[in-house]
Simulated scan of single mutants.
Amino acid sequence: MTFKNFPMVSNVVFGRGSFNQLEDLIAPKRKGRHAPFIYYVDDVFKGNHWLTARIPLAYKDKIIYIPTLEEPKTEQIDQLVEDIILEFSESPSGIIGIGGGIVMDIAKAVSLMLTNKGDARDYQGWDLIKNPAIYHVGIPTLSGTGAEVSRTTILTGPERKLGINSDYTPFDQVVLDPELTKDVPKDQWFYTGMDCFVHCVESLQGTYLNAFSQSYGEKAFDMCKEIFLSDELSTEDAQDKLMMASWHGGMSIAYSQVGVAHAMSYGLGYLLGIKHGIGNCIVFDHLEDYYPEGVALFKQMKAKHNIELPTGVCADMHDDDMQKMIDVSLELEPLWENALGKQWKTIMTREKLEDLYRKM
């Protein structure tokens, strides 16, 4: 039997105010005054000097603000890579993503595509990347996605929504500063937090479960229950714990897989443009038959925080679009196998999947 040799994030710093150490952390990686650090920053921080004034710009370093109304597309990655190649005479010293899962996925994807020829869509899938990425750093300003620790980027291509899954994808450096999450709107806090919760449920109930993923998943699961159902935590404690739950949840699926909710959420994202966090919530709300205890807890959390999810998003979908959405979802075979076992194709038929989608 061959065991998975999983690459972990090489360096991580955690703590309130640790963002202020960024200059010291990246300085040894600077290759010269003509090799810039490129900062991809969530455009919600444009004009927010509390954060942007602390970005340690020098020489030809550049901040590029990233709109996050839509999840990243492969052609967007290709354009960002081309922009760098055309503007700078030398390859960047590094790519630094500051934001939620979208921005961190873009940072990972660009760092990979700077060293691998072709288009981003050519690498959607598992272990297609051949060359190591350039130095890249992840700094989450949302907690829950696990993007800061995962070997995946979520990308929508012309034919599919599928990540670049590679041993070269994980960040070389991660900065976990819970202070950076202080202004997250409540709904967004819930959706990304539930992404973490669903990671844990799907990992812990999956057929790929092992002691490695279980140890991380159980810890993150317990922290999610404390954060979203307890009244005992201070705001700062909740921020600290959710950032660590996100890390542990991401580690849990790194050595296993996610399941039904994520597979179906990818379909919603591809056809309807529904963002990953809220998409997981919309789907998971209807998965009592697959994750009864997890869904019951999710409904408690949703009620406690007065969250209203969109309804009827698929009810009137044209049949051609529905069939495409089913295709996108069923293409994610490792997710289905983890959820339902090796005979999953006999369990999750196209008809059953369409019936689930029509309820949403």
Rank of each mutant, 00 (worst) to 15 (best):
H305R: 11
K302T: 13
H262A: 00
G294L: 07
H305I: 15
K304M: 12
D289M: 14
L271C: 07
Q300W: 11
N280T: 05
Y270Q: 05
E288Q: 14
E293H: 09
L272W: 14
M264C: 08
Y270P: 09
H262T: 01
E293S: 06
P292L: 07
G259I: 04
I282T: 14
Y270T: 07
Q257S: 14
D285K: 00
I274C: 13
S256P: 09
I253E: 04
Y255I: 15
V258Q: 01
H305W: 14
H276E: 05
A254S: 12
F284D: 03
I274H: 07
Q300Y: 12
M301E: 07
E308V: 08
N306M: 03
Y291S: 10
I278E: 06
H276M: 02
C281F: 08
H262W: 00
Y290W: 12
G269M: 11
G273L: 04
G273T: 06
G294S: 11
G259K: 03
L272D: 12
G259M: 04
H305D: 14
N280I: 05
N280Y: 04
Y270F: 15
I274M: 09
I307S: 01
Y270D: 09
G273S: 07
A261D: 03
L287D: 10
K302S: 12
D289F: 15
G249L: 03
G279I: 06
L287G: 11
M264F: 04
S265N: 10
A263L: 03
A261W: 02
L268R: 07
H276W: 02
S252I: 00
Q257D: 13
D285Y: 03
A303W: 08
K275C: 13
I278P: 07
L268A: 09
V258N: 02
A263M: 02
G249D: 00
L271P: 01
G259V: 03
I282Q: 09
G273P: 10
G294E: 08
F298R: 04
